[in-house]
């Protein structure tokens, strides 16, 4: 079973005169363990597609199965539950400023009431070590560099062992060197776990991490290149 399989997905914003189609007959499959980059000009609908796959937005037409759950007609409750098995990485790190790096990562585990506090913190610490942030566990985000913050965000996305990682321009706020390091780290961690990644990016510097590059234009998938 593929982590993502999308069939004839249509989506529009607005109603009546203002109705604007942003996705037209999109079909896309992401296979287990695959790293797929979604690229294309602004307004091509890639971010909208990402929010639909991430169950952050209600579906309108077509079919979208994520981790075995059909999102068409899924309730808010079902979508919230599904989001717990997806790791999200945003353009900005969006870390909670009043928590330390370790506590931020542990936030991903607090919804699992079966875990003890010690277990959560231990796992968060190990995940931070895996992204190369040993020794920075108890610093607040304000004491970390941009690249370090984004790595904390990666640790937060991966610590819960998600079935899928969705990333939106994770290097947009970073310079070339730290941006490259961050995505390489993300790729190697995901590969070692067999976690598929779907990443929206404009950044030509990071295209080399992809197994497959999907290009979108005007709401359609226009090209698929396998690396």
């Amino acid at each position: 079973m593929d982590p993502i399989s999308i069939d004839k997905l249509n989506f529009h914003y607005g109603e009546g005169e203002l109705r604007r189609r942003v996705l037209r007959d999109v079909s896309l499959t992401v296979h287990a363990g695959e790293v797929v980059l979604l690229t294309g000009p602004s307004g091509s609908g890639k971010t909208t597609l990402l929010t639909l796959i991430g169950a952050l937005r209600g579906m309108q037409d077509g079919s979208c199965r994520v981790l075995g759950h059909e999102l068409m007609g899924a309730s808010e409750r079902a979508r919230v539950a599904l989001r717990q098995s997806i790791g999200f990485i945003f353009q900005n790190h969006n870390l909670l400023g009043f928590l330390t790096a370790r506590q931020n990562v542990a936030m991903s585990l607090e919804l699992d009431a079966a875990l003890s506090e010690a277990e959560r913190l231990r796992r968060a610490g190990e995940m931070l070590a895996a992204v190369g942030l040993s020794g920075h566990e108890d610093k607040p985000p304000s004491k970390l560099s941009g690249g370090q913050r984004q790595r904390v965000a990666i640790a937060r996305a991966l610590v819960g062992n998600p079935g899928l990682v969705l990333a939106d321009e994770p290097t947009a706020a970073l310079d070339k060197v730290s941006g490259g390091e961050v995505v390489q780290q993300l790729r190697s961690l995901a590969k070692s776990r067999g976690t598929p990644i779907l990443m929206v990016t404009h950044d030509p510097r990071i295209l080399d991490i992809a197994d497959r590059i999907v290009t979108m234009e005007d709401g359609r998938v226009v090209e698929t290149v396998t690396a």
């Binding site: 989001r83 717990q84 790791g87 945003f90 900005n92 969006n94 870390l95």
Partner: peptide, 11 residues
Amino acid sequence: REYATLKAIGY
């Protein structure tokens, strides 16, 4: 933004 992030990760 942080609250929205928490919602995104399943809160």
